[in-house]
Design a protein around this nucleic acid. Structure first.
Lengths: 348, 348
DNA sequence: TGTTAGCACTCCTTTTGAATGAGTGCTAAT
DNA sequence: ATTAGCACTCATTCAAAAGGAGTGCTAACA
């Protein structure tokens, strides 16, 4: 069977209406809603066809139709119109971000809150991946006799630090040498560019302190990696209670757990990051999500960039009948907003 | 009217039973439950008295009785017996903590998770207050021409760091001098011991860089304070769904929001910290809590110490019919556990 | 005087059945 | 191809009835 123009219009009307009301939509409603001037009976026939094709279905006999995942997918792919953002809202978001945060962490928390507030959905943000981003600065300091503090600054002012226990005491001079060695060798390199050969050279140059070097390098690498997959900021989790289809105990509990644990979110955002299309915005409907507890949700993700290959992902989680248009436009706005932020930082 | 021995026994039986079942408990149940060998009729008379005295009440006529806040309070104050922790459980908790974490942050997150897991209630932990704890190490480093990185290590290896924008470029030597100045002047001092006189002296010694000093000091103080009231770790929020009296949408949503925002939790833990009795464990029943959304909960808090005046507070949030005995004992165990951890750290 | 058996009464909970209404599918007429 | 009409389905609402847990009170008892 074919999806002719009229069927499309009806499908669109069904989806639009359902997005607004959350109630199954019947033929009579469509008959009045659209400018097709068809009777409800005709609509009924068309809707039966659409059901057969799998775009919509009835939650039970004698109820109206609601969109299936396939229906939503079609809507998102072919029928969605990005809304113009209202000037006021854009300014508002801009203002929220303009108080420049020196720490990325604070900035991202802020963004998460703003988005959750703005969309009324749950929001998650992964901190920018640092694998491909470059080391800007690295420093070891002696905290006390047996502990070193390693501070690592990555491009984009991402900070990592770690306390390393050391067996052997180091005097000031050695420490200074080590610092110079580390900085001259590693500075400007991306994490995954640090290879064994390089480490070997450093060890050699470190002379009697060679084992410290490898300890430090390991610790550095570990510090960066360890934190990495945990750095997820969330906000507006309790927004899920706004949507009855997600608010029952079973589902709500699982969702909230997922948002608290963050591990799964991280993996999901990570995966989404890699399979993203050119615009950087991706929509996952229902079971398209890999996360079990989000099977009844839709997720819209957007990749953002803070320069120097520092890319992270933002995700908005809501019910399947989320306002895709609005969410996509909002994310698009934030994307450019963050982009500008970075550019202005460049100039500084 | 007097609360004689028999009434106490009955009250205790009512509470115990209600803690277990969560259902209003009737006279017949008590009659069999206790070793008093009294008929249900007698129990009924006694329960009527207990109701008049305000220890228990009926949710509606012809229902059994449930404890009032006053009843719980009496139970907690006078009738609670701390259970022996099972050896297995203690070892389990020990093991969880034994993998020593160099970072306090990681340790506390871990503790929160273990506690939530162990008690099946929601858990919150405030990071140790650093106001009275001492500066161990402070260091400024130049990240690039216009940005300094300030790293501050407090006693107990609490790390703070902050990026400071600076107008004027500083050469290596000046930086070194500043570092020495900061360390020699501030090292070993508690935050609130840093006073204006001291800052004035430093400014003077810094000579032409005096304005940098005050900038730095301000930033340091701000960095410490700013993070302070936000550092709350939570876990097991979704445990509230286990308890029907907290799981309805309205309440659950508010609770979860409170746990996400963390601000109120921080204030509460802070307050609790100051009004704590000698054992360091405190029980708040229902409206005794200052947090609005927790009016239907009970909270048990425990103050822990990591040495050097570094005190923080742990809170367990559950329904009013929480297993007070168990929670108190668990918290007591964790307290000593953390204490030992600190002592062993001392020796290192 | 304290305890207990017995009974009427209350009120929550569950079940049942009927009424309502939204929406459909199908048929026959246009 | 479209539409009016109609029988049919099924979730939802409502009221009434049945069931049951538990109480308070009274009167009898040790």
């Amino acid at each position: 069977m074919e999806l002719d123009e009229r069927k499309k219009k009806i499908l669109q009307a069904v989806i639009r209406n359902y997005l607004e009301t959350g109630e199954p939509v019947g033929s009579r409603t469509i008959s009045k809603y659209t400018d097709l001037n068809l009777s409800s009976a005709t609509i009924r026939n068309e809707m039966a066809d659409l059901e057969e094709m799998g775009y919509i279905f009835q939650p039970h006999t004698s109820a109206g139709r609601i969109p299936s995942d396939k229906g939503y997918r079609f809507y998102v792919d072919a029928m969605m119109e990005e809304k113009e953002r209202e000037v006021g809202e854009i300014r508002e978001m801009k203002e929220m971000l303009v108080e420049r945060q020196s720490k990325i962490e604070t900035l991202l928390k802020q963004v998460a809150r703003v988005l959750a507030q703005n969309t009324q959905y749950a929001t998650m943000i992964s901190a920018p991946r640092s694998k491909r981003s470059k080391l800007k600065f690295i420093q070891l300091s002696r905290v006390d006799a047996h502990q070193l503090l390693a501070v690592i600054v990555l491009e984009g002012n991402v900070l990592k630090n770690n306390i390393l226990p050391v067996e052997e005491e180091l005097d000031d001079e050695t420490l200074l040498k080590l610092n110079i060695l580390l900085n001259t060798t590693l500075n400007g390199l991306a994490i995954d560019e640090i290879n064994l050969a390089m480490i070997a050279v450093m060890k050699q140059q470190a002379g009697i302190h060679s084992h410290i070097v490898s300890e430090v390098i390991d610790a550095v690498a570990e510090a960066i990696r360890a934190e990495e997959d945990l750095e997820i900021y969330t906000s507006g989790t309790n927004n899920i209670f706004r949507y009855p289809e997600l608010a029952d105990q079973q589902k709500a509990s699982e969702l909230i757990n997922t948002f608290e644990e963050k591990k799964l979110l991280g993996e999901f955002l990570q995966a989404s990051h890699t399979e993203v299309e050119e615009t950087g915005i991706q929509v996952y409907i229902g079971a398209e999500t890999s996360v079990q507890s989000m099977r009844d949700c839709s997720v819209v993700t957007a990749t953002y960039e803070l320069g120097g290959g520092m890319k992270g992902t933002i995700g908005i989680v809501g019910p399947k009948r989320m306002d895709y248009d609005r969410v996509v436009t909002t994310l698009r706005t934030i994307q450019t907003q963050l982009d500008e932020l970075y550019r202005s930082e460049e100039k500084t």
